[in-house]
Design a protein around this nucleic acid. Structure first.
Lengths: 244, 244
DNA sequence: CGGTCATTTGACACGGCTCAAGAAACGTGG
DNA sequence: CCACGTTTCTTGAGCCGTGTCAAATGACCG
């Protein structure tokens, strides 16, 4: 519940009532190991899911084995805020490392919405951000070169990892194989590797045991013209300890 | 208002009360000519927008002139159902031909949501569908070849045009230049042209004055393995006069 | 009728893909 | 702790889908 509170509070500066409302939510904790499917296409979950720890990937697989990652889910991210209508999931969610998930009945979430406090608004902010991230993914993969895509995605994930309370400074833990990056960015994993090595050789970043360090963040920013406004972080800018 | 009612009714089989609630909505009609911007990035509209007639494109432009269309808006599509939180638009909307737009105050829309009738549910269904279309756009552009992309997008637009009450049978009016198609599919307009001509020569489709006819729809479906489930049309399948 | 914009086609270049094979990292059981 | 199988990463060679550039043609519009 910490991850959720942290996230919502980041957006909306919650007060006591909001905190109480959130604490009152009844939820179940499920643990998924790396490689397990949290949601499978066609499921009709019935609950909303909140990532409490670990990373997951929303993806769609084509018939012939190709597959595309839609986006990554970090602690505090919510699956299925479209709690008002129920429909079979049109995509799957895969655990990238061990993921703890809070599963909450739709009507529980609705009770928070109904209270019309800041917690409800913060949930909406989450939904708005999630959709904006999808849109940025479209632009990234549609109109950017391989190098730009990699730089842009790393900058996004770095930013989001910081918000989730993971990572420190210019480093963050990224439990994502190069093949997964390829499926996220619409490239081959061979080419992902080449781009990563090139950036590494240029001193822009370094990698070690699943940790990424953005050695020259400004260089990466410039490389892909990264603007973070799509992350809609300005709900409450004072939450962020530094300026980009 | 017809386009909206038609769309919502398609999803939810509205009753008299719902109809009354919708008819009671106060709105303003704005007309935009082809090429005009309905929403400009950075705007904070304050209202929700419903396309009443005509086509529009949501897009994001990069600094250097590249631009990416996120998706197309057809009659009955709604802009900004995230009415509960207000934030600057992170993308723009461009009129592709003459577009009539209903502009509705957020609180008006909220009143329909609050009534908890089927109209509210139908709005949610719209939001769910919109996000699913974005996801499919990611997969299409990320993991499909140029030919598959073109076929897949045409099939989607055909389907959506029929639902909007435009088009007839295998034909529909598509006020979209090849350069726009290119910006939607992450390709160059030269290549779009080649693919279209190829499909045309193969007898899969024909074009005339902005009208597209899917001469061999099944062929196109097979070509890109088109599954229409992402359009979430199953809310009320009987509304559709034919089976795919 | 001229001007502008959209379409079409050819020639050529190149970014990223495929295939292949070796090296490194990782997990597991002994 | 090592040994082993498995997955992931790395690198090279060659190819192909798509981009770029350029120019002609056609469609539309006042």
């Amino acid at each position: 519940m910490d991850a959720l509170f942290r996230r919502l509070n980041y957006y909306a500066d919650l007060n006591e009532d909001d905190r109480t409302a959130l604490d009152g939510l009844k939820y179940r904790v499920e643990v998924y190991e790396s490689g397990e499917e949290i949601i499978t296409r066609g499921d009709d979950p019935g609950d909303a899911f909140i990532v409490s720890s670990g990373w997951a990937a929303r993806y769609i697989a084509l018939e012939d084995g190709r597959s595309q990652i839609l986006n990554f889910m970090l602690p505090g991210d919510v699956y299925d805020l479209q709690v008002f209508v129920s429909s079979g999931a049109d995509h799957s969610v895969l655990a990238l490392n061990q993921v703890k998930v809070l599963e909450i009945k739709r009507r529980e979430i609705l009770s928070v919405f109904d209270k019309k406090g800041r917690a409800g608004a913060a949930f909406w902010w989450c939904a708005l951000q999630e959709e904006a991230i999808l849109r940025e993914q479209i632009v990234r993969n549609g109109r950017r070169s391989a190098r730009e895509r990699v730089a842009h995605l790393l900058l996004e994930l770095h930013r989001r990892a910081l918000i989730s309370g993971e990572g420190a400074g210019d480093s963050f833990h990224m439990p994502v194989s190069q093949a997964m990056l390829a499926d996220a960015l619409g490239l081959s994993f061979v080419h992902i590797n080449r781009v990563l090595r090139e950036l590494e050789k240029a001193g822009a970043l370094s990698r070690k045991k699943g940790w990424i360090t953005l050695e020259r963040r400004e260089h990466l920013v410039e490389l892909c013209d990264f603007r973070d406004d799509y992350l809609h972080l300005d709900a409450n800018p004072r939450r962020l300890g530094f300026n980009f």
